[in-house]
Nucleic acid binder design. Structure first.
Lengths: 192, 192
DNA sequence: TCAGAAATTGAATCGGATTCAAAATAAAAG
DNA sequence: CTTTTATTTTGAATCCGATTCAATTTCTGA
């Protein structure tokens, strides 16, 4: 099994899923774009859901490492939280196709929603709780808030804003403004 | 067209969707449980997606009116926000089937995600922004935060916590504790 | 009681994910 | 180089379930 074939299928799937949506995307067309036979896709991926989830897992690797780098640039926990929020929304703005895939299409996969409790998603969320814990240890953030709840709450907030932006045709929403407001609400909410 | 038939199909669909998930639910089985022929379901609903969305629209009516009542019981904007948060999570805890349908299955419907910009969802979100605006007018909440952003941020946070709870098998998460923490973060974040 | 309209039926159609026997290709053995 | 054997790929056939629609049943009102 040529390793390159897997990559080709993955790359083709990103394009087709982004263009047609998960539901309307045809395995046959993904195969055609990848230059392989329909059945070949099933040698590299269990099924359509697995293909989508694999895209997620692969795409999250650079996203997580970039985010980590971005966070580490900042000194204080406050700045790190700011960095997370800004970078997350930056991504949504700059990679709309990928954003659409990760935010919208991925959640239509029954397997993802139900079965998956994947490491990459957890890892991404844990970037938030790590920063938060650091802030707590330094006495900057309130200690009566559970990092586990905080990470979900902040992620949920960002995700709602992002999805709304991604789905809005016009794109006239100002994500920088949103980022500022979110940071504002949350930092005031957790600072001692 | 007997009005009662539509209700029977709707009721059967809730059961089957909740039990099998949107994707695995079979129209034939919904029809059987409703006591009609397969084709009959298509006289009352355009397709499977439309059936799911119709459930959403109908279920939201009492949810919205109960929530409105609950909010109006409270005096201050702060208490109203508290009420919203508590009641939302209360619902998730007390009607797990419906929660699963609204939070999980609904979002697997391509039509819902893409096409739908439904009135009921907007209406629910606007309950939040109304309370928030009221608080701003009374000078209780900061005026530099946009109600439109606030409503999405709070809803997103609640939704993430709720979905996480709904999908977790064990249900050992304490939603009351979560409610308290969320209220805590947000109220500190927006109070002057 | 009967013609026409409205509602219902469920078998047939259709689309697309998935499978798998056959074919092609690569690797190993002589 | 053949020949064998193992690996990879192919794409037509299968399968499943949403959706359709011609035929049938039920209702209406003259």
């Amino acid at each position: 099994m040529a390793r390159g074939k897997r990559e080709k299928i993955l790359k083709a799937a990103v394009k087709i899923f982004a263009r047609d949506g998960f539901f309307n995307a045809k395995m046959e067309e993904i195969a055609r774009l990848a230059g392989v036979a329909t059945g070949t896709t099933y040698l590299y991926f269990e099924n359509k859901d697995d293909l989508l989830i694999s895209i997620f897992e692969e795409e999250m690797i650079p996203i997580i490492s970039n985010m980590t780098r971005e966070i580490n640039k900042a000194e204080t926990a406050v700045d790190k939280l700011h960095a997370f929020i800004n970078h997350h929304l930056e991504l949504v703005k700059n990679k709309p196709d990928m954003a659409q895939l990760l935010e919208v299409e991925l959640r239509q996969s029954s397997k993802f929603i139900h079965g998956y409790s994947g490491s990459k998603f957890r890892e991404y969320l844990n970037l938030i709780s790590s920063v938060f814990e650091e802030g707590q240890q330094r006495g900057i953030f309130r200690s009566d808030i559970q990092p586990t709840i905080f990470k979900q709450v902040l992620f949920g907030a960002l995700d709602q804003i992002s999805t709304n932006y991604t789905l809005s045709r016009s794109k006239k929403i100002d994500l920088n403004e949103s980022a500022e407001q979110i940071a504002n609400i949350f930092l005031n909410g957790v600072l001692r």
